[in-house]
Simulated scan of single mutants.
Amino acid sequence: MNILDDLKLQYKLGGIAMRVIYWNIACFLISLVFFYQYSGGGFDYPNWLALSSDPQVFMFKPWTLLTYAFFHGSFLHLFFNMIVLNFASQLFLTFFTQKQYLGVYILGTIFSGIIFTLSYYVLNISAPIVGASAAIMAVLAAVTTYQPLMGVRLMFVGSVKLWHVTAVILILDLMQLRLDNTGGHISHLAGALFGFIYMKSLQNGTDLSVIISKILDFFTNLFKKSPSTPFTKVHKNYKKPTEKVTSRIVTKDKTQQQIDEILDKISQSGYDCLTKEEKEFLFKAGK
């Protein structure tokens, strides 16, 4: 199995969190081709991708409330964001569903984008913003609100409480609020605020992520082909055939049983614990 097949299999089996990470990486690679200024050593994103704080631009390109969260200003920006996203995603998905995860990610992105544009409009500053940090903070703050005392292990640090991790990130944002990248820090704080609001609403019986789930389900069903019902001829003198008595025990075939065993192994120890033969078997079975 080559590296490309390995990546395809991870994308297929990794769930929504892995797919969001892949989408961010893919958008960054596209950015290197179309938007990177090699002479200036930076990205020049068009205003139909980056979120602008200028109302005259923003009002006519509302989709940028979502697209800005999938592009990044540098490799390090992407790298550290994906590390924190992977960390927050695993914690969130321990307690909640993939649909809730995607809902928090998207709604956190939109909420933070609106707060950013309003803040910069009030401050009379015009600047674009890109990055998934706000959405990541929404996911992290949501799970922290739900389980603040959960113990997590950090490299070079050891065991700490989850709320300690989130608090340090928020304090750093507050300390740098009036320094460089003010808009980025505002969006981070807004993302954390949304994560807190989401979790409190959920605990009170209102799941805000249902909004995103319903929208996605609508478009999925819109483009899904409805199964055609074949015409059946009805005979009046129809004699009901004698029903055969069959066993209610359904046995799995060997292939499905082996797939289930491998998936159980992934859920317990992760994808990387698979042998080369097991990875190849899963890839061939998924075709």
Rank of each mutant, 00 (worst) to 15 (best):
V57Q: 13
G73H: 02
S89D: 02
F79C: 05
Y68S: 09
L123C: 05
F111D: 05
F60A: 01
T97M: 03
L102Q: 00
Y120L: 14
L91C: 09
N47D: 15
G41C: 13
I110V: 15
V20G: 09
L93S: 05
V33D: 05
S89P: 09
F43C: 11
Y38E: 13
F92R: 01
W63N: 05
F58R: 05
I83E: 07
Y105L: 15
H72G: 01
Y120H: 12
V104A: 07
Y36E: 04
F80A: 01
V84A: 10
L118S: 06
L76K: 10
S53D: 11
L118F: 10
V84E: 09
F95N: 13
Y36Q: 07
S39W: 09
Y45S: 02
Y121S: 11
F34I: 04
N86G: 12
T67H: 04
N86P: 04
M59P: 06
I25F: 13
L32N: 13
I25M: 14
P55R: 07
W63E: 13
F92W: 03
Y68C: 06
Y22H: 07
V33P: 08
I115D: 09
Y101A: 00
D54T: 13
F71K: 01
L66R: 00
G41P: 13
S39N: 15
C27A: 15
G108S: 12
F96W: 12
F75M: 03
V104C: 06
W63I: 14
F60N: 02
V104M: 07
Y38A: 11
T109V: 08
N86A: 11
N81A: 03
L65S: 11
V122L: 15
S74R: 06
L85S: 10
F80R: 01
Q37N: 15
S52C: 06
K99T: 05
N124Y: 03
L102T: 01
G42P: 03
N81Y: 00
L93W: 01
G113L: 04
N24Q: 14
Y45M: 05
F70N: 08
N47E: 15
Q37W: 08
L107H: 04
F71C: 00
A26I: 13
S89F: 03
N47Y: 14
K99I: 02
I106H: 10
